[in-house]
Design a protein around this nucleic acid. Structure first.
Length: 279
DNA sequence: TTCCGATGGCCAC
DNA sequence: TGGCCCTCGGAAC
């Protein structure tokens, strides 16, 4: 489920509803019993999201680090929490809300030092206010990997997952296999803006819905999953811009979706020239 | 009822 | 690069 948008959304909800509450904690599954004992009885004082990582700070300097990985799920119930599933790694309960965490890649207590070390490795997160596009640009251009690979590298830009990379590259009309070192500033600026907008909308709405191009009225909120994307998981279906069948490529064991025509080398530059000419 | 894939990432080789 | 971990919904039988 989780790309950066989900993590930021969770952080916002928890900040609003849970900070200042005291929690009891347990680990129905048993794999986090020791950590749960340390958490139990403490008040949540802050919640922060960085890329796909979530940090809950409790009183007494106790810090919980959660990474949902591919399968992780963090549910919240304001009232009437159901019994936890047997796989529930951590349950945090207060009179006002209950959290159920299952299947995380990471659920651990970290010292402030360990948290700082972890965060120092993360690249610019487009959803964080201090994010620097200039640093992200420099970081993306390091090395020779294709743009599509560089985008998933959390040490360059953090929070981007497989859906967002496909949709952002499509909206920015960039060829996914372009060597990242050849990315030009004007192309990067379109890409960064696409990422920022997709992430921000998805963090607010709770799911990724890519704007359709060419400009079409925004679909109704009831838009079905398979209609939410321009290219992701749409192999063989017509590109919404040019009707060319969407391509699927296996790259570093991840599926990559793109339009060979709209995202051919030079497509972005051609479009930029056209829009300048018509201004 | 079983099976499979998924919006991640780590580690060993 | 491949194997592996973790969970769960929906497709396939």
């Amino acid at each position: 489920m989780p790309e950066g948008n989900i993590i930021h959304r969770l952080a916002r909800i928890h900040r609003r509803w849970l900070v200042g509450r005291g929690f009891s904690a347990d680990s129905p599954q048993g794999r986090f019993s020791e950590g749960a004992r340390h958490l139990s009885g403490r008040t949540l004082v802050a919640v922060d999201a960085h890329g796909k990582h979530l940090f809950h700070h409790f009183e007494g300097g106790v810090r919980l680090h959660i990474h949902l990985g591919l399968f992780g799920n963090l549910r919240h119930f304001r009232t009437g929490a159901p019994p936890p599933s047997p796989a529930c790694r951590l349950r945090l309960a207060s009179p006002h809300a209950t959290l159920h965490l299952s299947g995380p890649q990471a659920c651990e207590l970290l010292s402030p030092q360990a948290e700082a070390t972890l965060r120092a490795r993360l690249g610019e997160d487009p959803l964080r206010p201090e994010a620097s596009p200039a640093r992200a640009f420099e970081s993306l251009r390091r090395g020779r990997s294709p743009l599509a690979i560089a985008l998933l590298d959390q040490e360059r830009i953090s929070g981007v997952g497989n859906i967002l990379r496909a949709e952002a590259l499509f909206l920015a009309r960039l060829p996914p296999l372009l060597p990242a070192s050849e990315l030009r500033l004007e192309d990067f600026e379109r890409l960064w803006e696409a990422l920022r907008e997709l992430l921000e909308d998805a963090a607010r709405d709770g799911r990724i819905v890519a704007p359709r191009a060419p400009p079409a009225p925004w679909e109704t909120p009831g838009r079905r999953r398979e209609d939410r994307f321009n290219v992701y998981d749409r192999a063989g279906q017509p590109c919404p811009r040019c009707a060319t069948p969407i391509s699927r490529l296996e790259l570093a064991s991840r599926a990559l979706f793109f339009c060979e025509r709209c995202q051919s080398p030079g497509a972005g530059a051609r479009r930029a020239r056209q829009s300048r000419a018509t201004r």
